[in-house]
Amino acid sequence: MKPYALNDITLMQYIMLINGMSVSFGFIEIPGMMATKVGTDGWITILISGLITMAASFITIQLMKKSPHGTLFDLLKQKFGTWAGRAAAILFALYFLLYAYDGLIYTVRLIKGRMLMETPAFLIMLMLLLPTYTIVRNGLRIVGRYAEFAVFISLWIPLVYMYTVKHLHVLYLLPILKGGWQPVLSAVPGTLFYYLGFVSSIILYPFIKHQKKAPIALLIANSLSILSYLSITLICTMFLSPDEATIIHQPAIYVLKSIELSFIEQVEGLFIAFYAFIFSLSWIPPLYFTVFCLSWVMGRADHRIPLRLILFMIGTSSIFYIPTYDELEKISIWLGESGIAIEYAAPSCLIALLWIYGRVKTERNQL
């Protein structure tokens, strides 16, 4: 019997967790980032970054196939000793904690700036942390079910953007590659930030019911992320002129101002309210992964104690200090740089290391 069978997740939940973590706040930010750095050719950068992410994701899956009934930490412990497993678990705990904190601060700033201007930021933070504790404390199965709920309740959002079709100008996309390949390729490292989250497979893989279908599920999750980013970037690019796109903050929300519905006054307000469920996937699953890693290090099955400690520290610190937008941007840069190292580079290095380890062990046995 698998050691994690009592808390297993379905392939649909696996897809929603991976896709939700990557799309979350990237859906709003990526059109503006593409307009500033690439211009109207941003959709090409998104495609290239998406293909790179797919390749890195499949490398991660190949790594986890070496330990189908355990996490990466169990694999490292088995091959190199307890110290290697604990070191990796602590490293990933810190990474997922940074991921979750970045998502929390971004959401607090967005809600305060767009909806609750008069509400203190620490109160918004506390309102977010209370349901977070309720969900995370009950384990991965509940986190997976929440991810399904968050995605399905937000499926109406892409349909709303269809109302902007009459305002789109396809000619804004032309000519293609007007600045050559250099701007397109130079923006790829920064775009990879918006695809982060797939490395959670190192924890999710042993929980999946049908592990043989995990590569297909990961392909679907990454394809949904690429499709989401492509659609919103193309809509914003064709809605705004090239000059407007570079000066308007969060174009994905701005274009909603053109939509007029008889039964609602401000579509963008409703969008933010419902999209908060998607935002929550940028911190709820990472917080679970954080406490899972810490519990693994301590050898405890109960993750609620580290969860309470982390949430208490975040909630208490928010009373005295909330990062500004400039500081949040620095946090995102740190997350992006560490994410490229941990999610894109580390799995390939570990596979190479395990291959060398296997060859050396085989040669020693033959002596």
Rank of each mutant, 00 (worst) to 15 (best):
A87C: 02
A87E: 03
A88K: 00
A88M: 08
I90F: 11
F92W: 09
F92K: 07
F92T: 08
F92R: 05
F92G: 10
A93D: 04
A93W: 00
L94E: 13
L94Q: 05
L94I: 03
L94R: 00
Y95E: 10
Y95G: 03
Y95V: 07
L97D: 06
L97K: 04
L97T: 05
L97F: 09
L98V: 03
Y99A: 08
A100G: 05
A100F: 01
A100S: 12
A100R: 00
Y101P: 11
Y101C: 12
D102N: 15
D102F: 12
G103Y: 03
G103K: 08
L104T: 07
L104C: 07
L104W: 02
L104K: 03
L104P: 11
L104S: 09
I105F: 05
Y106M: 10
Y106P: 08
T107K: 00
T107L: 04
V108I: 06
V108E: 01
R109V: 09
R109N: 14
R109H: 13
R109Y: 05
L110I: 11
I111H: 02
K112D: 14
K112F: 00
G113T: 07
G113P: 06
R114Q: 14
R114L: 11
M115S: 10
M115F: 09
M115N: 12
M115Y: 10
M115A: 10
M115L: 15
L116K: 09
M117H: 15
M117K: 14
E118W: 14
P120G: 11
P120M: 07
P120K: 08
A121V: 01
A121C: 03
F122C: 10
L123V: 13
L123D: 01
L123G: 05
L123H: 06
L123M: 12
L123W: 06
I124P: 01
M125Q: 04
M125D: 07
M125V: 06
M125Y: 03
